[in-house]
Design a protein around this nucleic acid. Sequence first.
DNA 1: AGTTTTGTACAGTTTTTACTGTACAAACAA
DNA 2: TTGTTTGTACAGTAAAAACTGTACAAAACT
Lengths: 182, 182
Amino acid sequence: MEGKETLDKVRERIIETIAQNIHLYGLTSSAGRQFGTMFFHNEPMTLDEMTEELGMSKTSMSTSVRALSDLKLVERAWKRGVRKDLYQVKDDWYQSFIDLFSIKWRRSISLHSTSIKKSLRELQLLVNDPATSEEVKEFATQDMAKLEYIRDYFEWLDRLVDAFETHEIFDLVPLTKDLKEK
Amino acid sequence: MEGKETLDKVRERIIETIAQNIHLYGLTSSAGRQFGTMFFHNEPMTLDEMTEELGMSKTSMSTSVRALSDLKLVERAWKRGVRKDLYQVKDDWYQSFIDLFSIKWRRSISLHSTSIKKSLRELQLLVNDPATSEEVKEFATQDMAKLEYIRDYFEWLDRLVDAFETHEIFDLVPLTKDLKEK
DNA sequence: AGTTTTGTACAGTTTTTACTGTACAAACAA
DNA sequence: TTGTTTGTACAGTAAAAACTGTACAAAACT
């Protein structure tokens, strides 16, 4: 197996690079190493194989493979005759990026929108209420302008996520470089 | 000051929503609260005011205001006669999103690209080397295909970041909803 | 039915991160 | 110059997160 060390060194380098950047996905470097290992493994892997390969507990493998699945970076695979759960990395990284983007932001957008809508309603009542002091009314009006601004911002963000999910983003940033030169 | 509690309750709700979502920016909820407080404060704030307002140590305020500045969510302000450093939230949230996106991803893209390029070079040498065993050559060729795929992916991601930085993204996802209906 | 295998819940431990208080350098004031 | 003020480096502490090992339920096998 002449050349095996070079091959392993290369794989190790890529895996480590992934591990050190996966925090962008909100994952730990261990999960990154796990992902990288699966990436180079040509067959779907079992939890026990991961334990073996990474020298970590099976419990850890289980929890981080779940985290990877939640972000749609990894998917389950089936293979007849194999009783253990099998996992493999999703082969479409573009789609994985989109899924990640969507999962991460949709929730945040929704939470913000709800909270902003509710707040705007309350401020409107406050401004309309004759009992409210003039000073408070002034502040409330200012705050309403601020909230309307960020409401619009999140509405834009929502449409941005749409553009990824519908793949319209590929019209603007095509998959292959050539296409961009119109 | 009739209605003050309602106003405060509203502000508190928005601040808390920001705090609970700012982990998407890789920041702690404390930094989120700090950001939210500055957002509603109509004047630029000093570190001491933040300490006062949030009941946390000045050291903490200093470190997290730096984190907020690094992500371009907050900027320094000047006011004649004031010796202390003043900070305020950037008023263009769209630009802040773009800056964040760019800062976060550019570094990762660059690290990956470097590591992939280096690895592809080494694998090519390995494949060309007559001393390399056939089995290793086979693996190396497979790995090269994988690396070429992710090289293209990161190249796409790089162009995606470009599209944000150049504001071309607003052609696809316009600022105001109406424009979208062509 | 019983037996074995497999994934994960949970408690405990280790490691990391967030936060505080002190101390001090740099900038400013007198 | 000397005395203040201001931000942050640094060391220590508190809190949170990552990881492990045990224990067990669910599923698969006999």
